[in-house]
Design a protein around this nucleic acid. Sequence first.
DNA 1: TATATGATTGCCT
DNA 2: GGCAATCATATAG
Length: 223
Amino acid sequence: MSPLPSSFFARPTLQVARDLLGAYLVYESPDDGRMVGRIVETEGYRADDPAMHGWKATFGDDGRVRPEGRAADLFAAPGTAYVYKVYYTHWLLNVVTEPEGEAGAVLIRAVEPVEGEEAMAANRPASVRRRRDLTNGPGKLTQAFGINEPPEATTSRFHGTDLTAPPLYMAEGGPVSDDRVEITSRIGLSRGIDLDYRFVVAGHPFVSPGEPSDVRRARKTGG
DNA sequence: TATATGATTGCCT
DNA sequence: GGCAATCATATAG
């Protein structure tokens, strides 16, 4: 269980997203002991991508790149944590990709509990009954691992930290062969929904229940 | 400066 | 299946 090195993340974002399937997410919690989850769903976010944070301001019409605001942290060293809050209360874990100075990140969307499952359950609401609901979503897994923050916090204590060393890191797991990898549009987006940047272990029970954005659009427009 | 909306979840009917 | 929570950030004006 040794951390994946910086060189693993210093590659094209979609390659990293795909290769993280099957890898372990490890958190050596000072309070809850070691927690391990097998990654079964990821999404890539890149510089060519309207769904990227601050995309318009960062990659302006004149083609000049302006790392500023929230997006500036996507240019950090490969293997750096990019953690942010959506909908007021939910914290999402990303790992920065590409060589330093280039923007990119992979969102960890779902894991299967491998170790420390009791601690994960204790971190989730008591109303959670089905086992898969412990970690089958990007906000759920940060909560299960206890790497979330209270709603009033603006930034995460893990944001900007090095994910190639303990306490929070990723480790090599059982590789997933190409015929078991499914590639789809990403979930919950209104922009960049025609880009197939989502990678899942096909049919895995811990994949998040959301519907890919292009499928959702087709359904809503009567398609 | 002003407004719109979210890389989601959980509770409601 | 529908929808509220609840404000920082991005984008429009």
